[in-house]
Amino acid sequence: LQLFIKTLTGKTSTVEMEPSDTIENLKAKIQDKEGIPPDQQRLIFAGKQLEDGRTLSDYNIQKESTLHLVL
Rank of each mutant, 00 (worst) to 15 (best):
L1D: 03
Q2E: 06
Q2I: 15
Q2P: 07
L3A: 01
L3K: 00
F4W: 10
F4Q: 07
F4G: 02
I5H: 01
I5A: 00
I5Q: 00
I5M: 02
K6I: 14
K6E: 08
T7L: 15
T7W: 15
T7M: 15
L8C: 14
L8N: 13
G10V: 02
G10W: 03
T12K: 07
T12C: 10
S13H: 15
S13K: 07
T14L: 13
T14C: 08
T14P: 05
T14W: 11
V15M: 09
V15R: 00
V15D: 01
E16F: 15
E16L: 14
E16R: 11
M17K: 01
M17T: 04
E18N: 13
E18L: 14
S20C: 07
S20A: 08
D21M: 07
T22W: 04
I23E: 00
I23M: 03
E24H: 10
E24M: 13
N25K: 14
N25H: 13
N25Y: 13
N25A: 14
N25R: 13
N25M: 15
L26Q: 02
A28H: 12
A28K: 15
A28I: 13
A28F: 12
A28L: 15
K29C: 05
Q31S: 12
Q31P: 01
Q31W: 15
D32G: 09
D32A: 13
D32K: 13
D32C: 06
D32V: 13
K33D: 06
K33S: 12
E34D: 09
G35L: 04
G35R: 05
I36S: 03
I36C: 04
I36M: 04
P37K: 07
P37C: 05
P37G: 05
P38T: 14
P38N: 05
P38H: 11
D39P: 06
D39R: 10
Q40D: 08
Q41I: 13
R42D: 06
R42T: 15
L43Y: 07
I44N: 05
F45Q: 02
F45S: 02
F45R: 02
F45V: 03
A46D: 14
A46S: 09
G47Q: 04
K48F: 10
K48E: 12
K48W: 08
K48L: 12
K48T: 13
Q49S: 10
Q49G: 05
Q49P: 11
Q49K: 09
Q49R: 08
Q49Y: 14
Q49C: 10
L50S: 01
L50E: 00
L50M: 06
E51F: 06
E51T: 05
E51R: 07
E51K: 08
G53S: 11
G53F: 11
G53E: 11
R54T: 06
T55R: 11
T55Q: 08
T55F: 08
L56G: 01
L56P: 02
L56A: 03
S57T: 08
S57F: 09
S57Q: 13
S57E: 12
D58Q: 08
D58K: 02
D58V: 04
Y59G: 01
Y59C: 02
Y59R: 00
Y59S: 03
N60E: 07
I61L: 07
Q62L: 11
Q62W: 08
Q62R: 09
Q62M: 12
K63T: 15
K63Q: 14
K63N: 15
E64Q: 12
S65T: 08
S65G: 06
S65H: 06
S65Y: 06
S65W: 04
T66W: 09
T66F: 07
T66P: 02
L67K: 01
L67A: 02
H68Y: 15
H68Q: 10
L69A: 02
L69Q: 02
L69E: 00
L69C: 02
L69W: 02
V70Q: 08
V70D: 07
L71G: 06
L71C: 06
